[in-house]
Simulated scan of single mutants.
Amino acid sequence: MKRFPVPLLNGYRNFMSGRYVDERERYRVLADQGQKPHTLIVACCDSRAAPETIFDAGPGELFVVRNVANMVPPYEPDGQYHSTSAALEFAVQALRVRDIIVMGHGRCGGIRAALDPSAEPLSPGDFIGKWMNLVSTAAEQIQGNSVMTDSERQTALERISIRNSIANLRTFPCVKILEERGKLQLHGAWFDISNGELWIMDPDTRDFVRLDK
């Protein structure tokens, strides 16, 4: 029998002797009464950009769905499997979150792949290639900008992708209706892995503004 990863076993033991001891009562209440997170965060799978760590959140505070490049697809009730859409529907209709944040980050591998049309698919099925088609139009426009550097193009698409996902959120009837009623707010954020900076999207101008530490 293959052994469970040792670093995870050690991490679990540290958790049980540390944080769990401090928050034992909170876990008991969550187990008895269920979760009531106030915010849904759509984040990237990237191991360097965990929302719970970035926002110093405790158990039960955030409902997090993570996928490659933190994208929200448009509303497509076509009978296929839609994990991000299912999580969104559950968060909005069952958990009744008050805020939805689409949080991107710097140096995103999925965005880099979208900007490089010559990149080889990661697998024969190339799920990532299909998924990144969500930003293919924007990627093609940015690729043709010779004035920008590679890193500038990368950052630009990372932020444009956030705006696209927020637009796609509004194609979901449950989101659109609640936002219009003032019961749900949509936000964009971008995290710089290299220096820990968090940039928030202004809801009016859609510019990203650095948050003071």
Rank of each mutant, 00 (worst) to 15 (best):
G106P: 05
V42K: 02
M148C: 04
L134C: 12
N164P: 08
D126P: 08
R98N: 08
P124A: 06
L122D: 07
L40V: 13
T84K: 12
L62E: 05
T155V: 12
I162F: 06
R48V: 00
K130Q: 10
A119R: 12
Q143W: 11
G104A: 13
A69E: 06
T137E: 14
L95N: 02
G58E: 13
H82D: 07
S146N: 15
M71I: 10
M103T: 00
N70V: 13
G125P: 03
H105R: 04
R107Q: 11
Y81N: 06
F55Y: 15
M71N: 04
S83F: 00
D126S: 04
A43W: 02
E61F: 10
G79F: 04
I111E: 01
R48Y: 00
V102C: 12
H82T: 02
R163W: 01
G129T: 05
I111Y: 00
A69M: 09
G144H: 08
T84Q: 12
F127N: 09
N168H: 15
A57P: 09
A138W: 00
D46A: 08
D126V: 10
T149V: 09
R96S: 13
M132K: 03
L115E: 09
A57H: 08
R96L: 07
S151E: 15
E152Q: 14
F63G: 07
V135A: 13
H105M: 10
I162K: 04
I101L: 15
T53S: 09
T149W: 12
A86S: 13
I54P: 09
I142T: 02
C44E: 05
H105C: 07
C108S: 08
V92E: 05
L95G: 01
A156N: 00
A167V: 08
V102D: 05
S47Q: 09
S47C: 08
G104S: 13
E140L: 11
Y75W: 12
Q154A: 12
R66F: 07
G109W: 03
Q154C: 05
M71V: 09
L88I: 12
S165R: 05
E52K: 07
L122A: 04
S85L: 06
R153K: 15
L157M: 05
M103D: 00
N67M: 10
L134V: 14
H105E: 09
V147H: 13
C108F: 04
